[in-house]
């Protein structure tokens, strides 16, 4: 009788211990091949502590969400070949969206790039504006002449 009670108690104790074990968080620390994405403003101020999400193309649920670190960086460990969409946003409405791809070995193979680098943008933009107004001026003068 005592033996039977002891066995029942032991089985119950073990089963409770097993289910409790499912809530006991474990961890490992190791190295890995991460893609590092840096976000920053035009003047190189880092986009620090702002929220982002990375979603595999074609899926609705994000693969990774979080906040950038103090230097505006995101460490991302993809799980295979895919195109990823990253969306970063700050509370004051700054942010960006772009795509990048990884291969079967989960290595970065390409990313959207700005068409023109940030310093050239300003020069090109000013030139385009002045050029457009130049043409407009010629148009008005020609119209006046006729």
């Amino acid at each position: 009788m005592i033996l039977r009670q002891f066995t029942a108690m032991a089985v119950l104790g073990l089963s409770l211990a097993t289910s409790a074990g499912a809530h006991d968080l474990q961890y490992t620390v190791g190295g890995g091949q991460a893609s590092v994405i840096s976000l920053f403003y035009v003047d190189n101020t880092p986009f620090s502590f702002e929220s982002y999400e990375i979603t595999r193309e074609g899926e609705k649920l994000p693969f990774q969400v979080g906040r950038t670190d103090a230097r505006g960086r995101i460490a991302f460990l993809p799980d295979g070949a895919a195109t990823w969409q990253i969306k970063a946003v700050s509370e004051d409405g700054h942010g960006l969206e772009f795509k990048f791809s990884t291969d079967a070995a989960a290595l970065l193979v390409g990313a959207d790039k700005p068409v023109v680098d940030r310093y050239s943008r300003i020069a090109v933009g000013v030139a385009v504006i002045l050029g457009m107004f130049g043409f407009l001026s010629l148009y008005i003068k020609r119209k006046r002449a006729t």
Binding site: Y41, V42, D43, T45, I122, G125, V126, I129
Partner: peptide
């Protein structure tokens, strides 16, 4: 002035 506005909007 339009070009100036463009430059200002590009500088944070």
């Amino acid at each position: 002035m339009t070009a100036l506005s463009f430059v200002l909007m590009m500088l944070a």
